[in-house]
Design a protein around this nucleic acid. Structure first.
Length: 441
RNA sequence: GGGGCUGUAGCGCAGUUGGUUAGCGCGUCUCCCUGUCACGGAGAAGGCCGCGGGUUCGAGUCCCGUCAGCCCCGCCA
């Protein structure tokens, strides 16, 4: 018989249906047995006689053929979407038996610590509350695409294998590449910029790789970067405005498409004011000094503590969970960053902070060929490995800029997760590639 | 790389100033239960207290080492 999805059952009262899915939980009452069956669309209560319930256990994969029945009013369960009905089983079939579970899967919340959550990833990804994280993430990424497609951006696939390290700063993974050495890309930055000279407006959803020896709650060695870049801008503010539009678009989509998922985490979309406040690094540091007495005014960057403080300021003073910080030090940024002509010490760069953490960085890029070449030398880089990038600007380029958002960080902060690994299906860090590396020795 | 904290049953945890037989909840197994929905009730199994050494009459508890994990800082296109 044709399979019916669980979410369809409330509309099929009186009909015989075949449901296929996993046993979420079994409640045995002797002469009557209840099974909450789970498929990708939801949960439904199945009523069975013991003979049909067999020895079904949590996570067994089964099929149930039965009649959809309206529940009497006093038996309605308002907590599940199919709570007005139940399915009275007439026939059951076991597809696949589940081994004894290492923890309780039938609970509303998985009560496991992070290492257990990841050690049993194939299993924990079945849990509805865990799945909610990745539904939100899928919507975030989809909304990013939709927002930029609506502005006529072209999606491209950036390469992961690169021949030279143009950025400096972050550590890179080396890979053996036949007789040569290559690297894993830390960013599609140079590709998206050079593509602007061909397509004007481009974006990409790519994995990026960082060999930073960082063990924190917000760093991964492999993560998903949402990149956008576009040309013919008038100023760096246009980049910041485009980013604001994209972030707002993402929030709207998540709000309208993920109400259920947000509710599971008791989460609310970050508060976004009519206009996200934009503040220069030095002004931000002055504000921190005024608020806390902590003098960070000579620092070259914001420490995590500073990022939290400036977010607190934005929240209290500007009614916004988000805040842009601009004009970082040119020398702390990569060679392609565009200095502010008014004071070249500072750059047309802009980070987006949300709920205490950096969500993105972006800004205006250099577009003048000779200036770029000079900077390549000044930054101590080699022209050879980035020849294609330089070529793009040699043959004419519009004024350009762009930004990159971290998909996992957005997901994490929307849902209020404490560790970015929770917002990553298969997180890689210094100690883990699917399994703990220490277990492989 | 620096600092802090934690390793006790499958999972999540408690365990007093060092004291006799190692505790709780969930899960698992057996039995009972026709209206539960995190069902309930009765019973049972399940532990080299991460590992190694030390102090002590006596160590889950104190000390040293080691391994594993978590958090903070640093680093972070």
């Amino acid at each position: 018989m044709k399979r019916t999805l669980i979410k369809e059952t409330p509309q099929l009262v009186g009909q015989t249906v075949t449901l296929k899915g996993w046993v979420n939980v079994r409640r045995d009452h002797g002469k009557i047995v209840f099974i909450d069956l789970r498929d990708r669309t939801g949960l439904v209560q199945v009523v069975l006689v013991p003979e049909l319930a067999k020895d079904f256990h949590t996570e067994d994969v089964i099929a149930i053929t039965g009649i959809v029945k309206q529940r009497p009013e006093k038996l309605v369960n308002p907590n599940i979407e199919t709570g007005t009905i139940e399915v009275e089983a007439k026939e059951t079939e076991l597809f696949s038996k589940a081994a004894e579970l290492p923890f309780d899967m039938g609970k509303e919340t998985l009560e496991v610590e992070l290492p257990t959550l990841l050690d049993y990833r194939s299993l924990t990804l079945r849990h509805p509350k865990v799945q909610a994280i990745f539904k939100v993430q899928a919507v975030v990424i989809d909304a990013f695409r939709k927002a930029l497609q609506a502005k006529d951006f072209l999606e491209f696939q950036a390469p992961s294998i690169i021949s030279a390290v143009p950025e400096g700063g972050a550590e890179v993974f080396r890979v053996k590449y036949f007789d040569h050495e290559a690297y894993l890309s830390q960013s599609p930055q140079l590709y998206k910029s050079l593509l602007v000279t061909a397509f004007e407006r481009v974006f990409s959803v790519n994995h990026i790789y960082r060999a930073e020896p960082s063990v924190t709650t917000r760093h991964l060695t492999e993560s998903t970067s949402l990149d956008a870049e576009f040309g013919f801008i008038e100023s760096w503010e246009e980049v910041q405005e485009m980013e604001e539009y994209v972030v707002r678009f993402i929030f709207d989509e998540v709000n309208s498409r993920c109400a259920k998922e947000l509710a599971l985490y008791n989460a609310t979309i970050p508060l976004i004011s009519e206009k996200i406040p934009v503040i220069k690094l030095r002004d931000a540091q002055e504000i921190i000094f005024q608020r806390t007495g902590r003098d960070v005014r000579a620092e070259k960057d914001l420490a995590p503590e500073d990022e939290r403080e400036i977010c607190a300021w934005a929240k209290e003073e500007k009614d916004s969970d988000l805040v842009f910080v601009s004009h970082f030090l040119t020398k702390k940024k990569p060679f392609y960053v565009h200095p502010d002509p008014a004071d070249p010490t500072y750059a047309y760069s802009v980070d987006l902070l949300c709920r205490g953490v950096e969500w993105s960085s972006g800004g205006q890029r250099l577009s003048d060929y000779q200036t770029i070449v000079n900077n390549v030398h000044e930054w101590g880089l080699s022209e050879k490995g980035i020849a294609l990038y330089l070529q793009a600007f040699k043959y004419g380029s519009p004024r350009l800029g762009g930004f990159a958002l971290g998909a996992e960080r957005i997901t994490m902060h929307i849902l209020g997760l404490k560790n970015i690994r929770e917002a990553t299906m298969f997180p890689r860090d210094m100690e883990r590639i699917d399994v703990r590396l220490s277990t492989l020795e």
